[in-house]
């Protein structure tokens, strides 16, 4: 490991986050603080509208908090290039997959790589490896319409891993899946977490998913519930 003393800061730290959406003055977050350590797998649970997606978008650098600050490896997100942060450090997975319908599985995986210095051959090689890793080598050239929903979500996960992020943020990744596909996706996420040390933050309503992670953060009305 590292010969220097280990940095005390967690991978991700949120301090006093609030978020007020401009239209209608909705206060989606009312002071959220939390730490997520390296290699942790965390689930966020809570009723609809309590601010889970809002929090995840802030943590992923997709939006800015109204108040508060997020630190990635000790550095405030407000001081770094968020595009670069998302491209290099974060992988997003969504409930509705959002894979591009005009592209094949292996092409979808290459989409985030346009923001890197990889050349075309390297992009293809890397995408092929990732598609294989999610168990879809035999379907690499299929379009999303030809894939089952579980397979589509696996393509989306491979795509989230395209630029070797340290953090995978998933917003109800199994919300649109049948129970068999849910198990497959869960298995895959577990694998990534345990074998590759990926840090996972998963929003979920599913007890099975919650049971598979180390820690559950519960939210209500824009706040994290303390135990």
């Amino acid at each position: 490991m590292n010969e220097f003393p280990v940095q005390p800061s967690p991978l991700l730290r949120a301090e006093g986050l609030t978020k007020t959406y401009p239209d209608g003055e909705v206060q989606a977050l009312r002071g959220v603080s939390l730490d997520v350590e390296r290699n942790e797998a965390v689930a966020i649970m809570g009723p609809s509208g309590c601010g889970k997606s809002t929090l995840l978008n802030l943590l992923g650098g997709l939006d800015r908090p109204t108040e508060g600050e997020i630190y990635f490896r000790g550095t405030p997100l407000s001081q770094i290039d968020r595009d670069q942060y998302r491209a290099r450090e974060v992988g997003f997975v969504f409930q509705s997959f959002y894979v591009l319908s005009t592209l094949s599985a292996v092409e979808n995986v290459q989409v985030p790589m346009f923001e890197t210095t990889l050349d075309r051959r390297q992009r293809v090689e890397r995408a092929e490896a990732l598609i294989e890793q999610v168990g879809l080598a035999h379907r690499r050239n299929h379009r999303p319409m030809q894939l089952s929903v579980g397979e589509r979500q696996r393509v989306a996960i491979a795509r989230a891993l395209a630029n070797e992020p340290s953090l995978l943020l998933a917003d109800e990744p199994t919300g649109n899946l049948d129970s068999r596909s849910q198990n497959e996706v869960l298995q895959l996420l577990n694998d990534l977490h345990q074998r590759q040390g990926l840090t996972l933050i998963i929003i979920t309503h599913s007890p099975e998913v919650a049971a598979a992670v180390q820690r559950v953060i519960r939210m209500r009305d824009g706040r994290v519930l303390e135990h």
Partner: peptide, 16 residues
């Protein structure tokens, strides 16, 4: 619009 949001989430810059 949504697809553009996805691309941005995947790290695409405004310029791309």
């Amino acid at each position: 619009t949504q697809e553009i949001g996805v691309l941005r989430a995947l790290g695409w810059r405004r310029s791309r």
